[in-house]
Write a protein that binds this DNA or RNA. Structure first.
Lengths: 240, 240
DNA sequence: CGGAGTCTTCACCCTTTCTTCACAGTACTC
DNA sequence: GAGTACTGTGAAGAAAGGGTGAAGACTCCG
């Protein structure tokens, strides 16, 4: 299993949609390429053998189903997983596509998150490795609201510099590095101190309280998920 | 995913019933084989690995439940889906069977159409989600209607985020991870708390009620299976 | 050694959630 | 169509989870 990025081919004639998919695919650590026609797709696929194909059903020249069929006939392209994209009301085509061997599908309009989840699932099933999006950034920026700068070790919220203790900084950085993801108290402790630190999990609460107080107006960004842990509110990440 | 006909094994001691099932299964494009005893069934299943087992609970030698248990113990037979056939008044056996891992059931006397619809459903599910027991996906996606995101610990129904308590989230996740599969109250309790939790099974009803209320328009997705438990509806299920 | 700043734990209180109970409502049987 | 069995649901008490102030411990520094 390679460590390389997964290669994704996007077959979609509407440029906006294609770019939307491309953007999110790359953000998820895949290498994306887009083509706008069925014939070109077949050609590119035969040459480049991508790891995954995102295939719109409605194409100007060669129908998506037709593309699918041709790929499944080709000895060397048969095993490439296909995720179909269809407009609502093309259910029968979706069924046909699945029967032809497509692996999954999404219906337009789709949320980027849903699409990416499907792509990841299909890739995983196919055994293709995909590098997780590396969060090695030295700086986290969120909509101009919050800046977490690892180099300077300093946090700016709503334009004002905030003075955080080491632990608070660590927690905020950990949470903000994956906005929306819930972290358990144990995970938070582990991220700040070593893995196998034994600490009362309530300790985290205290730091969170302090953090919120210092964040002032942005206190809401640190959300409590009752019974689970905490997460950094996504606020305005991607649009649907 | 093979294109061949689905292989169905009918375990049924009454010849008339067995033939009835066989007839309809073959008419539906499956390849059917029937055996009349539990012991023989185990033997045949181990050798032939059918795609689906139709299992009568009342058998002369080895009880249907016993067959079910043995199959679920075998590494290589565990994932073969089972549809149980039971006579009226064997509800407790049905519950036991489902807890053992059977996937669905029909009650005698059954209409062939109902039975075949169930078989088709189970086959389709098994074909799509070929993973053995648990869906390890961090995200469950259902037709754009419902998104259960484990990482974010968040549920989106028909595009809107909904706020669920921990227990409700757990129940929904459990049910939705296997759409169409019936789950007993005990299974549901076990999935949320530990296995050997002692709770009034009626507690589940209360959570289901709350869950349905919060799901709004999607409330119908949580179906009651009278006498057995609950299941997540697949939307386009069968008609009677 | 003393003090400042930080981290951890504890205790208390409030809120949310869970569970149970009781009764109403509904499906199924005879 | 009456009786039975099962499910839906409101209400209330019990339990759990989380916020927060305060106290002690620890570290680093002068």
């Amino acid at each position: 299993m390679s460590n390389a990025k997964a290669q994704v081919l996007i077959v979609e004639d509407e440029p906006e949609i294609a770019e939307l998919i491309e953007f999110h695919a790359e953000r998820a650590g895949m290498r994306a390429r887009k083509v706008h026609s069925g014939r070109i797709a077949i050609d590119v696929i035969k040459r480049e053998k991508p790891d995954l194909i995102v295939l719109d059903l409605m194409l100007p020249d060669l129908d998506g189903l037709e593309v699918c069929r041709k790929l499944k006939q080709g000895e060397d392209t048969r095993s490439i997983p296909i995720v179909m994209v269809s407009a609502k009301g093309e259910e029968s085509d979706v069924v046909a596509g699945i029967e032809l061997g497509a692996d999954d599908y999404v219906t337009k309009p789709f949320s980027p998150r849903v699409l990416m989840a499907r792509l990841r699932n299909v890739l995983r099933r196919a055994g293709v490795a995909n590098d997780p999006p590396p969060t090695t950034d030295r700086m986290i920026l969120l909509e101009g609201k919050l800046v977490v700068d690892l180099d300077r070790h300093e946090v700016t919220a709503a334009g004002k510099k905030i003075d955080l203790t080491l632990t608070e900084f660590g927690i905020l950085h950990y949470l903000a590095s994956r906005p929306g993801f819930v972290r358990t108290r144990d995970q938070i402790i582990g991220s700040v101190h070593g893995k196998n630190t034994v600490l009362s999990s309530r300790t985290v609460d205290v730091h969170i309280t302090a953090l919120r107080r210092k964040l002032g107006a942005l206190a809401d960004c640190v959300e409590t998920v009752r019974g689970v842990g905490y997460r950094f509110s996504e606020g305005a990440t991607e649009a649907e």
